[in-house]
């Protein structure tokens, strides 16, 4: 032992609307370090998929290389999966989305896989507004190669190596907003009450949904001086708003006495109820989101929650004017024009 998880589960676990219990969304036992934030994110993904009653075969999980990209093994064992090349998860996902637009696409990446080797892929995936959830498990270091600072490490942050980071960080959430991502959020692996509704909202969103999840590396970047350690993040945590995911048919029953409350509609009819909204922030206003991010940086806050959500956006398939039917199901009959059509086309070029 203990590379095996016992088979027994809580005997009174409820099942969701499609008849599955939470365990049906689990994966193999994690081989990451105990206490890794990534495991919590995996747990949140399991919880979100269970609560949304997603049929596991309706979802594809894709990843690149790194600690983060190992995690798809640890959740949704019954779903489709593709563990691709370092930084190339967006291209593979692009292909998959083109081939079968009917699946739910969950891309999992890390700060190295996205902000360094995969940066080129990342920015173009945003530009294409691929209909996918893109989760970055962001720990500010290269955990799999023993903890070197990554491109998202804050200036001056000290990892286990002990040397303050000399470079400016890349803010993936800010960059995503800048490049036109239609859903941008940031969260923290240690706060499932926020992360789970955000993942559910991201999955309900049509278009590119990006969640930057600060996820402490318990082995190389959880020491005093690090800005991505559990206690630093918790001390500097600031949310744009508290979030509740409200499924399609359910009424909002929670009411908050204080602060503003807003209701953000998602594409599938579900809603995100926002409570205690931060001043000077409007989830639909890109400018206010960017400004809020900059203020947070000045104040050394880790700003979490929903950052930006566009009201209307066109996705990749809409840009391309593809048919509604998934391309991989088109038969020869659908694809090869008839003699008459071909003759008409040829006639046009004469």
């Amino acid at each position: 032992m203990t590379y095996i998880k016992p088979k027994f589960r809580h005997p009174e676990l409820p099942v969701n609307a499609v008849g599955y219990a939470r365990k049906d969304y689990e994966g193999a036992i994690s081989t990451l370090c105990g206490g890794c934030g990534h495991d919590s994110i995996s747990g949140a993904i399991v919880q979100a998929c269970y609560e949304m009653a997603i049929e596991p075969h309706r979802l594809a999980k894709l990843s690149g290389i790194g600690c983060s990209s190992k995690t798809p093994t640890y959740f949704l064992s019954n779903s489709h999966g593709f563990n691709s090349v370092h930084g190339r998860m967006p291209s593979v996902t692009t292909g998959a989305i083109l081939a079968n637009r009917d699946l739910i696409y969950l891309g999992v990446s890390g700060d190295g896989d996205t902000a360094s080797i995969g940066m080129g892929q990342f920015v173009h995936a945003i530009r294409r507004n691929l209909n996918m959830v893109y989760i970055v498990m962001n720990n500010g270091c290269y955990g799999l190669t023993k903890g070197q600072d990554s491109a998202t490490a804050d200036l001056g942050s000290i990892s286990k190596g002990g040397v303050p980071n000399a470079y400016m960080p890349i803010d993936l959430a800010g960059m995503a907003i800048e490049l036109g991502a239609s859903f941008v959020a940031r969260s923290f692996s240690g706060d499932k009450t926020q992360l789970v509704p955000l993942i559910k909202a991201a999955m309900s969103h049509q278009g590119f949904a990006f969640i930057d999840v600060v996820s402490p590396c318990v082995t190389f970047n959880n020491n005093p001086g690090s800005t991505k350690s559990y206690d630093y993040v918790r001390e500097h945590l600031e949310a744009t708003a508290a979030v509740d995911y409200v499924p399609e048919k359910e009424e909002i029953t929670i009411s908050y006495g204080e602060g503003q409350t807003a209701d953000v509609e998602l594409h599938d009819g579900s809603r995100l109820a926002l409570h205690k909204i931060a001043p000077n922030w409007d989830p639909h206003d890109r400018l206010s989101a960017i400004q809020r991010l900059h203020v947070a940086r000045e104040k050394e806050e880790v700003l979490t929650g929903l950052l930006y959500l566009s009201k209307d956006n066109e996705t990749f398939h809409q840009f391309l004017h593809t048919v509604d039917q998934p391309l991989n199901t088109l038969t020869e009959e659908d694809l090869i024009p008839s003699q008459e059509v071909l003759a008409a086309i040829n006639a046009d070029h004469r």
Binding site: S30, G35, D39, S40, G43, V218
Partner: peptide, 9 residues
């Protein structure tokens, strides 16, 4: 350190 590892496993 409230990392949730125990909850998840």
């Amino acid at each position: 350190i409230e990392c949730d590892a125990c909850v998840d496993i």
